[in-house]
Design a protein around this nucleic acid. Structure first.
Lengths: 221, 221
DNA sequence: CGCTGCCTATCCCCTTGGAGGTAGGGGGCA
DNA sequence: TGCCCCCTACCTCCAAGGGGATAGGCAGCG
């Protein structure tokens, strides 16, 4: 029911800042001849480099790391062209983290406190191309999906153009259209156009909503 | 050079949630015949009651307590008419705490790790009516004052009335005057008046600035 | 080449927001 | 009692915001 025995083992790159945990995973994988730990990284930056060099079948990625966090690392991996499976590996059972990871394109989300046998089983499934999520999180996932259904158009910063993001940043600083225009050296009318467009894209109804959203989202930096 | 020996000792009320620390202060004060521990309280609520009953010359007030924090307790003391000295007593050497305490009307700010002899000396000074601040904090204080000079009218949530805070909260949620009016069951004109007033008090120039400030300040909760 | 997306700009039209003043009712306080 | 603050409401006047439409210049792309 697995992938190999005839095939070559699935290679795995582990990116996690806890040395002891890396040790544990390494020992676990050594016992399995269809799973091979191709490399380890204690920092996201090294992880990105190794992913490029080793091109593993799967990346096991810690969500909570100092500096660049797991989501950012995930995105960086995809941006640098890594096409293999990315499975988040974390202690966080918070819905936001789970949702953020999946929305960012993670192929799995496993909790670190899971049973080793179960862990191996899930990794095999992931290697087969199946989405794996720790069972205890399914309730959370259902919850997230349900609340998502009711707000079809979640505002997304990425739908904005460069200029619109710039306008939004100034807007979120409390500036009026007139002041934004002066600052960016364009006419007030043009600023209005950008504001109108970004409001439409973000599905918001006023600049105040946009400003609040931007601040809460941390766009204003 | 002190207050007493002829006079009656200065009475002190200690409000702090750490029993051991209260014990320590009690023993320290027992050795001084010009300082008398009039009462102790492990919770702010009891402290407020004792302040009313005992009317001590001075209140030593912990800044970090579960539930109502020190600043809130300080204000509550003043609001219930307590007119004696209030000296904050804390482990926090953060500028924000120091500034908040002083702005809220504290007559002193002492660190818990100070030398016992120094502590007694400072309390005597406080009893004399002098502002006392742990020496290690003077640099912080200078810093706070300097940064304050350049922004004369720092927005302060406490200058707002209850209704204005309520309006601000809705405003920071992105609601228009019309919607706020409907929600609070008043006319739009009245909402405008409140918005106008709170903008003036906070020295802001638009509802957008107010919303951004409120969100960043965490007023919107 | 034409098509598309982005940035810029301008037009009209209507709504919203903000500054100013006036004023009545209610509660606290000297 | 009078005074002051707060909340409420209404008024005018003007500035600002936002929807809709149109359009030229420019870059990338099939």
């Amino acid at each position: 029911m697995t992938r190999i025995d005839h095939d070559s083992p699935a290679t795995i790159l582990l990116i996690d800042d806890h040395p002891l945990l890396r040790r544990g995973v390494a020992q676990l994988l050594e016992l399995e001849d269809d799973l091979e730990l191709a490399g380890e990284a204690g920092e996201p930056e090294l992880g990105l480099r190794l992913a490029g060099e080793l091109d593993p079948d799967m990346v096991l990625l810690d969500l909570n790391m100092p500096g660049m966090d797991g989501i950012a690392t995930l995105k960086a991996l995809r941006e640098q062209g890594y096409a293999g499976r990315i499975v988040m590996f974390t202690v966080s059972d918070h819905e936001e983290d789970l949702v953020a990871a999946l929305r960012s394109g993670a192929d799995g989300y496993l909790l670190k406190d899971m049973d080793p046998d179960e862990m191996v089983r899930q990794l095999r499934q992931a290697a087969l191309g199946r989405m794996v999520i720790s069972e205890s999180l399914t309730a959370l996932l259902a919850e997230a999906l349900r609340s998502q259904r009711n707000q079809p158009a979640a505002p997304d910063i990425h739908s904005l153009t460069q200029r619109e993001r710039e306008i939004l940043r100034e807007l979120a600083a409390g500036l009026s259209n007139k002041l934004i225009a002066r600052k960016l050296d364009i006419t007030e009318g043009t600023v209005k156009v950008h504001v109108k467009h970004l409001l439409k894209k973000l599905n918001l109804r006023s600049r105040v909503e946009a400003a609040v959203w931007a601040v809460q989202e941390g766009v204003d930096k």
